[in-house]
Design a protein around this nucleic acid. Structure first.
Lengths: 266, 266
DNA sequence: CGTTCCCTTGAGTAGTTTCAATACTTGTGG
DNA sequence: CCACAAGTATTGAAACTACTCAAGGGAACG
């Protein structure tokens, strides 16, 4: 359930206990639209999940090009959206708990990328016919699902900007800042450490550089005193400095949480 | 209406005449979901457009961060999705006729990027309250709108892959291949020339390189005999060679047209 | 007919890649 | 518990790609 002992502690906090009515979907749009959904709608959404599926590290949930008739909501761990080509793999996005990893498959019918587990994960499965029926009955739920895929698109756009404007160390820093904020929205951020099972090759495939260059970029972040990244896990005691270095502005994540992110459009 | 005399000819072709019932929305999802929409639904969609707005080259339709209560469908010309930062501008996407340029603003309420005209364009305006009402009454239209924004996301993902894996000349070639295919889906592709009012600086901001480097990349495409790009307009007599050079696979555009793109997942 | 914007070219610099070799981790079976 | 194997991380050197700065040429617009 929890990604680490720290998160375990957070899940046992009072406000987390209030959410145990929704063991599978408690994080869906948490920190964004979730507060605008009625308790009834939240129950409908929770009831969509018929099954949970553990996936071992590096295993694939959906293969690129495959027709899909169900979608998965990530319950714990991280998943990667990947495109394999002749000369290497490309990572076009990261999913955190609460994200529907392939909701766009509902309308597109087949995916243009694969979804792979980074570390061991658990996924909740939703059958498309049930989702379809629910969305016709509850327009607000349909809107929430749409919103969730639009968030993905906003993150894609930020990645495009990041790849166009930042150098390798800043790209890596930006990716971790984004993850930290997204984890914060679902109450799973730790102030000093971000545990993730990424290899330097994974980071390379996210940043579009070689893994050797990732190593040097990671060294640079260490030498600048901004962050220490070891085997995917980032340690820092100054997120603020790291965010500034990465030119990270969280407004694109459309959060409405304690950070009042929506106010910060620069 | 037409982008060039060639397209003017195509618009006068018999199958184009059959579409004049929809002067504003004839290209919406053309070559994709459009054929699955009833004539009735197509009329509803056409009636959404209350107004048309001409926009002069380089003018902005929506500013990043601005609240929006309407969306625009591009009628003619190209628009750019841009993010201005302290040190330069970044282009995260291109819109062609038939695209809703800011449909995601409907659910997100404010945009994380600006929408700017590349050359003179015309836009049809749709008020969100009307769209909202229509989508509740006609679930298939709601689905079509969702699908349209998912196409944008798929294109974003391909751009991420392009930025991660291709060098500058290939990025430029890929962008033009994509535009050629998207224009083809709406019947506005010309076999030998793709007219676009892009400067080399525009291409630079799309590719994440300097304009000087774009100039050298363009020279390389010319020297390879693949394409001649002058003032944004691309001339070639071998699209097939250009596509191969750019490693362009159109399946991510989810077309169902004469090319049977959906069959080509590699 | 000149101004302005856009494109082109050259030279030096910074960032990134490749190749190759060496260490460190983690997991597994003896 | 140790030894080994496989995967992962680190470092150096040379080559390449792309960037910046700077200056000159060309096309479009009024």
């Amino acid at each position: 359930m929890a990604c680490c002992t720290y998160c375990m502690g957070m899940l046992n906090a009072p406000n987390a206990l209030a959410e145990t009515d929704f063991p599978h979907t408690e994080h869906f749009l948490s920190g964004r639209l979730r507060k605008h959904l009625s308790r009834e709608d939240l129950h409908y959404i929770e009831d969509l999940v018929e099954d949970t599926l553990p996936i071992a590290s590096r295993d694939t949930l959906v293969e690129r090009g495959q027709r899909v008739d169900r979608s998965g909501i990530l319950l714990s761990g991280f998943m990667l959206r990947t495109i394999e080509t002749g000369d290497g793999r490309c990572i076009v996005g990261i999913d955190v708990p609460g994200d529907f990893v392939d909701l766009h498959g509902f309308a597109l019918k087949r995916l243009d990328h694969s979804v792979v587990a980074a570390g061991n994960v658990r996924v909740g499965l939703v059958q498309h016919p049930r989702l379809e029926q629910l969305m016709e009955e509850r327009p607000l739920i349909a809107r929430a699902m749409w919103f969730a895929t639009l968030l993905d698109a906003a993150i894609h756009r930020k990645w495009i900007q990041m790849l166009e404007q930042l150098d390798a160390p800043r790209r890596i820093a930006h990716i971790y800042c984004e993850l930290q904020t997204r984890l914060g929205l679902i109450g799973q951020a730790n102030p000093r450490v971000l545990r993730a099972p990424f290899t330097q090759q994974d980071l390379a495939d996210m940043c579009g550089v070689s893994s050797i260059h990732v190593n040097r970029a990671v060294s640079k972040l260490r030498n600048l005193g901004l962050a220490e990244i070891r085997r995917g896990t980032l340690y820092t005691n100054d997120w603020s400095a790291l965010r500034q270095y990465a030119q990270f502005d969280p407004s694109y994540l459309y959060g409405d949480g304690p950070l009042h992110l929506n106010e910060s459009w620069s």
